Simulated scan of single mutants.
Amino acid sequence: MYNTYMIRYGEIGLKGKNRPAFERRLMGNISRALGMGFARVQRVYGRILVESDADPARIIGKLSKVFGIVGISPALRLPLTEQAICDGALAVLKDAAARVQMAVGEPLTFKVEARRSNKQFPRTSPEINGLVGAYLLDNFPGLQVDVHTPRIKVRVEIREQNAFVYADDIPGVGGLPVGASGKALLLLSGGIDSPVAGWMAMKRGIEIEAVHFHSFPFTGEKSLEKVRDLCRILTGYTAQITLHVVHFTDIQKEIQRSCPEELRVTIMRRMMFRLAARIAEDAGALALVTGESVGQVASQTLESMRVINQVIDIPVLRPLVGMDKHEIISRAKVIGTYETSVLPYEDCCTLFLPKHPATRPRPDQVLEAEKALDVEDLLAGALERTVAENIKQ
C-alpha cells in the first residue's frame, strides 16, 4: 500500500550551515544500507524520502539500523488535491486501525495533525485538520476525536510537489550518520564490552576500523571467527568494517618471560596501545576506541589508564566509561552482539593473567620493567604479521 518511507532526523537539523553535508552523508548511508539501485533517496526540507518496491519489513529493518535516523514512517505520496488527501488519509486510518488492540466496547479515537510547508496550498494547517477529520468521521463508523491521547494520529504533510499521509512512527537509532565525525580504530577483544563501545562510537558518526590481538595457538580459529562474527553484526549498522588481526603471541610470551607478574597486564595493554596507534595512523584513524569502564578490572583503574595512555599521543575514546556491567550487557542484547560475545572462546586478554595484577601501577615501575623488552623489535615483528580483512554485511 505504501510507496514512500518518510525519514526524520534529530540533531542533524541543528547543524546550521553544515546541515546539508550531514544530510548528504545520511542519504549515502541509506542508499548503501538498502543496496544501490533498490531504492530512490530524495532530500526535501527537514526530511529524507525513500522510495522502494522491496519488502516493507526488509526496508524498515534496514533503515532502523542507520545512525542519524530518529523516525521512519511508511507514507502515501499523493497529488496536491483535497480529495486525494482525504482518500489517502482514510486508507492510512483503516490500515492503522486494523493493527490497534482495543478492549470490547472501547471507541477508536484519532487526531489529524497537518503540516503545510507549501504555503501555496489554498488551505492552512488548521483547515486541513478540519477537512480531513470531518471526512474520516463521515466515512469510518464508530470513530471519535481525541486531541490529547488518540489511539491513532493521522499526519498530513503538504510539500511543494506532493502531499504525504502517514500514521506510524517507527523509531530509529538516532545519533549522527556514520562517517560524519571521522574515523577511529576499535580495540575489539571478542568480549561483551568492546563491540558495544564500537556501536556507541558509530552512533556519534564515527566510522570504525577494528584491531584484534590474536594469540595463536593459545587462542584458536574459533576465537578469531567469533571476532569476525562480531564485526559482521556491527556491519548491520554500517557498510563494512576493516579488521586488522595482529599476531600477538610473541609479545605476550616475552612479557611473561621478562616482566614482573603483577605488571604483565599493564605492560600488555601498553603494547596493544602502541600497536593500535601505529595501525590507526596508517588507516587515517584519528582516535582509538576501547570498551573500558572505570574500575571494572585491574587495567581499568584511573592509575592504570594513565600509565597505559602514556605510550601514545592519539586520543582514546571510552564510550562505556560511566556504565556498569548490567547496562553494558543490556545494550549488547539490544544491538545483537551479546549471544556471540558470550561464546566460550578465550581471547588474549584472559591468557597469562596473573593472580594479583597491579591496580595502581606507577609510571617509574612500568618503565623499569619494560627495560627487559626490546619494545621496537617486538612491535615491528607484530606489525609485519598483521593481516587486514574487509568484513561486509
Rank of each mutant, 00 (worst) to 15 (best):
Y2V: 00
T4C: 08
G10N: 14
G13S: 13
L26M: 00
L26R: 10
L34D: 10
Y45D: 04
E51R: 15
P56Y: 10
S64C: 10
K65L: 02
F67K: 06
G68M: 01
G68S: 04
S73F: 08
A75N: 08
L78T: 06
E82C: 09
E82M: 14
E82K: 15
I85A: 14
L90N: 09
A91R: 15
K94L: 04
D95G: 10
A97W: 13
V100W: 13
M102H: 11
M102T: 14
P107S: 09
P107V: 05
L108C: 04
S117D: 13
S117C: 07
S117Y: 10
F121W: 14
S125N: 09
I128K: 10
I128P: 04
G130T: 14
L131M: 15
V132Q: 12
A134W: 12
Y135E: 02
Y135Q: 03
L137I: 03
D138M: 06
N139Q: 06
L143M: 03
Q144N: 09
V147T: 11
I152M: 05
I152H: 15
E157M: 09
E160V: 08
F164K: 07
V165L: 03
A167S: 14
A167H: 10
L176Y: 11
G179W: 10
G182C: 05
L186G: 08
L187P: 04
L188Q: 09
G190L: 00
G191H: 10
I192L: 01
P195W: 12
K203S: 03
I206L: 01
I206N: 07
E207W: 13
V211D: 04
H214R: 08
S215A: 09
S215K: 12
K226V: 01
V227T: 10
T235Q: 08
Y237P: 00
T238F: 09
A239V: 06
H244A: 03
H247L: 03
I251N: 11
P260L: 07
E261W: 12
E261T: 13
R264F: 08
R270E: 00
F273E: 02
L288C: 04
G291I: 01
V294M: 06
V294S: 10
Q296M: 01
V297N: 09
V297L: 00
Q300D: 05
S304C: 01
R306Q: 12
L317G: 11
H326V: 15
E327D: 07
K333R: 14
K333F: 08
T337L: 01
D347K: 11
C349T: 04
P354D: 13
H356F: 12
A358Q: 11
A358G: 07
R362C: 05
K371T: 04
A372Y: 14
L373I: 01
G381L: 01
R385M: 04
T386M: 02
A388C: 02
N390V: 09
Q393N: 13
